[in-house]
Simulated scan of single mutants.
Amino acid sequence: MSQYLPPAEYLPHDAPMLLLAEVISVTEDSAHCQVAIGAESVLAPFINAQGELPGWYTLELMAQTIGVWSGWHRRQQGQQRISLGMVLGARELICAAGSLPAGATLDIQVNLLMHDERVGSFDCTICAEGDLLATGRVNTFQPTQDELTILFNQGSTA
């Protein structure tokens, strides 16, 4: 039995966009999540005809694991409300095979490089059974509630 809540408790995502199945660990400067690639997994809507997950999902898997890290820390500080974070960009994001293999259980690991109240940078890896499948550095931004209100109300008119 895991000491961690399901990923949905830390992230502002619902199915089908919740791409993580389990939180394995969270520390002061890292998080580790897992998800399986298969017809019965949360990734089922996104796998191709060969049962693989296209490589472009690696960024979102990394970003959601960072979100778990952030959400877990917020809960530790007594904040129950889930906050929306944003990916500023990724550097050296590599998924050498171009896809993630059918039937694999993915281990997504993020390690904090730098963080202040609003900006973070994480080294990220995705492995399966000890094989390194994807790497990258992901930079994130935590907008204020006022900034989110402005952002999401830009298109609305009175």
Rank of each mutant, 00 (worst) to 15 (best):
H115V: 13
L106S: 10
N111R: 12
Q79I: 15
A39I: 12
L100A: 05
A39P: 02
G85A: 09
R75S: 01
Q34K: 09
C33S: 14
S30M: 14
R74S: 12
W72V: 12
D116P: 03
Q145D: 15
A39K: 15
L148A: 10
V110W: 09
S83N: 06
F152L: 13
T65H: 01
E60P: 06
A8Q: 14
L20C: 05
T135K: 10
P6F: 03
V68Q: 12
H73D: 07
E60T: 08
G120W: 05
N139Q: 15
G78K: 07
I126V: 15
L100W: 01
A97R: 08
L53T: 11
A96K: 14
Y4E: 00
P12V: 08
Q142G: 05
A128N: 03
D29P: 00
L59G: 06
D29W: 06
R74T: 05
P7S: 07
S41M: 07
I94P: 00
V23Q: 02
Q79V: 15
G120P: 02
Q76L: 12
L61V: 05
D107V: 03
D14M: 01
P54V: 10
L88G: 14
S70F: 07
L61G: 01
E129W: 11
D116G: 05
V23A: 05
I37P: 01
V119C: 08
Q3C: 03
A158P: 07
P7F: 01
V119W: 12
Q154T: 14
G136I: 05
M114K: 14
T144Q: 08
C127P: 00
H32M: 06
S30A: 14
Q142A: 15
L19Q: 09
L61D: 02
S70A: 15
G136C: 10
W69R: 04
S70K: 04
G38S: 10
V35L: 01
S30L: 09
M86S: 04
G120Q: 02
G136R: 10
Q77I: 03
Q50L: 13
P6C: 00
G67Q: 10
E9W: 00
L133I: 12
A90M: 08
P143W: 15
N48I: 11
V35H: 02
Q80H: 06
T105Q: 08
M17P: 02
A31K: 06
D107G: 01
L11K: 02
T144D: 04
G85P: 11
E9F: 00
A63R: 04
L5Q: 13
L53V: 12
T140C: 06
A49Q: 09
Q76M: 09
V35P: 04
S30V: 09
F141C: 11
T157N: 11
T58F: 05
E22I: 01
C95F: 10
A128F: 05
I82A: 04
M1L: 07
T149W: 08
P12A: 08
G136D: 11
I24E: 09
Q34Y: 00
I24K: 11
G71M: 04
S70L: 12
A90L: 00
R75I: 06
W69H: 15
A39T: 13
G71K: 01
L100P: 03
D123G: 09
P101H: 07
A15P: 00
A97K: 07
P16E: 12
E40V: 10
D131T: 15
S30K: 09
T135L: 10
A158N: 12
L133W: 06
W72T: 06
M114R: 13
